[in-house]
């Protein structure tokens, strides 16, 4: 079971969180013309590679905040975690 550092609450076991997928996906702005390709890239297409992966988790049984987690998809090592509004350098 992963051990995730919630930036708001500290180290917590994974069963307090729910997963939210690739955090690098950006929703196109509202009321903007979006091409089919751009929209499909947002809704469906994912890189999902082996190695470092920036992803969303929600601390659902805790502070209910969505956070960003940088994790290795092969080893599950967690490098860094970020608040929702924190820029990932």
């Amino acid at each position: 079971m992963l051990y995730i550092n919630c930036p708001h609450c500290g180290m917590r076991s994974q069963n307090e969180f729910s997963y939210g997928g690739d955090a690098s996906v950006k929703r196109p702005e509202l009321n903007k013309e979006v091409s089919d390709q751009e929209w499909d890239d947002f809704v469906y297409n994912r890189k999902s590679l082996r190695g470092k992966h920036l992803e969303l988790w929600q601390h659902i049984s805790g502070c209910r905040q969505w956070i960003k987690v940088e994790r290795d998809t092969a080893t599950h090592e967690i490098f860094r975690t970020f608040k929702a509004d924190e820029e990932v350098a």
């Binding site: 690739d22 890189k47 999902s48």
Partner: peptide
């Protein structure tokens, strides 16, 4: 699949 797709510059509607 995603690993090979990357080598082709393709992004697919697939997660691993």
């Amino acid at each position: 699949t995603n690993i090979l797709a990357e080598k082709l510059n393709m992004t697919l509607p697939i997660e691993t």
